[in-house]
C-alpha cells in the first residue's frame, strides 16, 4: 500500500465497521467464553472493535505514518500491516482489562482479534478495490 494519513484512517475505520463488524457478529457466539452470557460476549468483542478503531486513529496510524516518512518509496509493505496486529492487539487487551475494566479472557480475545485482523487485512489487499475503483490512486481515501 501507499497510504496517506487520511487514507490510512479512512480505510481502517471503513473496514473495521463493515467486514470487521460482520465478522465480529458472526464469530462472537462461537468464542470459548465459558458460561458468559452472549450479551456480555458481544459487549466485549464490540468494545474491542471500537478500541481498535479509536486507538488506531489517534495513536497507531499517525505513528506508522511517521515511520513511513523514512522510506524512500513512501509505501507500507503488506507484512507490516499484518505484524501491526501484535502491538495493537496487546494494547487493546491491556486497555480493556485495566482501563475499561472488563472481564476479558485471553483465548477468546486472541481468537476474535486475530481472525478479525486477518479478515480486515485480506479485504484491504484486493477486495476493497472492487467496489472502490479509485481507492488505490487516492492513498486509501474513500471520501
Amino acid at each position: 500500500m501507499t497510504p496517506t494519513l487520511a487514507g490510512r484512517i479512512q480505510s481502517r475505520l471503513f473496514l473495521l465497521f463493515t467486514a470487521g463488524l460482520v465478522w465480529t457478529l458472526l464469530i462472537t457466539p462461537l468464542l470459548p467464553a465459558g458460561f458468559a452470557p452472549l450479551t456480555q460476549s458481544y459487549r466485549t468483542t464490540l468494545i474491542a472493535l471500537v478500541l481498535v478503531a479509536v486507538l488506531g486513529t489517534v495513536l497507531w496510524e499517525p505513528l506508522y505514518h511517521l515511520l513511513q516518512q523514512f522510506r524512500w518509496e513512501k509505501d507500507w509493505p503488506a507484512i507490516l500491516i499484518l505484524l501491526q496486529g501484535v502491538p495493537e492487539g496487546w494494547l487493546v487487551y491491556v486497555v480493556m482489562r485495566d482501563v475499561v475494566d472488563l472481564p476479558v479472557g485471553v483465548l477468546p480475545f486472541v481468537i476474535h482479534f486475530a481472525t478479525t485482523w486477518l479478515v480486515v487485512f485480506a479485504c484491504l489487499h484486493g477486495p476493497l478495490r472492487v467496489p472502490f475503483i479509485r481507492w488505490r490512486f487516492r492513498g486509501g481515501r474513500l471520501i
Partner: peptide
C-alpha cells in the same frame, strides 16, 4: 528503486 518512480507517486502521498 523498485520501479521507474517512487511507489507513492502512483497513488500515495507523493502523488497528492
Amino acid at each position: 528503486q523498485g520501479f521507474n518512480w517512487p511507489k507513492a507517486s502512483w497513488g500515495g502521498q507523493l502523488k497528492v
